[in-house]
């Protein structure tokens, strides 16, 4: 990523590029485990969406569709809070990780 010179920066330390942290892929922090989404068991309660600190639950239309591994840090809260007896999100082992932490 090219870094601006002092002349190129907006005055007053302002960042005008709202929400550009989506380029930081926090999924690279994951180590050892990741959630797995089992669609047919999902009751669409949205608790996983509600309780994911890193906004890593994929929602399409009005349905939860899975996990966005670009952001998922593997904390496991989604799985713990998944209400059905047979959970729609389970934690599984993960060997390889994403190589890059930045979308650019």
């Amino acid at each position: 990523m090219k870094k601006e010179t002092w002349k190129e920066l907006t005055i007053g330390t302002i960042n005008l590029d709202a929400g550009n942290s989506v380029k930081n892929l926090t999924g690279t922090w994951r180590s050892g485990k990741k959630p797995q989404f089992i669609e047919e068991k999902c009751i669409q309660c949205f608790f996983c969406w509600l309780y994911c600190p890193h906004s890593a639950i994929l929602v399409e239309g009005d349905e939860v569709k899975g996990i966005n591994y670009d952001y998922c840090t593997g904390c496991g809260m989604c799985s713990v809070e998944c209400p059905p007896k047979e959970k729609a999100i389970i934690m599984v082992k993960e060997e390889a990780k994403l190589a890059e932490g930045d979308a650019e």
């Binding site: 942290s21 989506v22 930081n24 892929l25 926090t26 509600l50 309780y51 600190p53 890193h54």
Partner: peptide, 15 residues
């Protein structure tokens, strides 16, 4: 408040 922030695993703040 969008993704890509640096808060810890399992942090309560974003919730």
């Amino acid at each position: 408040l969008v993704a890509g922030h640096g808060m810890c695993l399992g942090c309560g703040i974003p919730l």
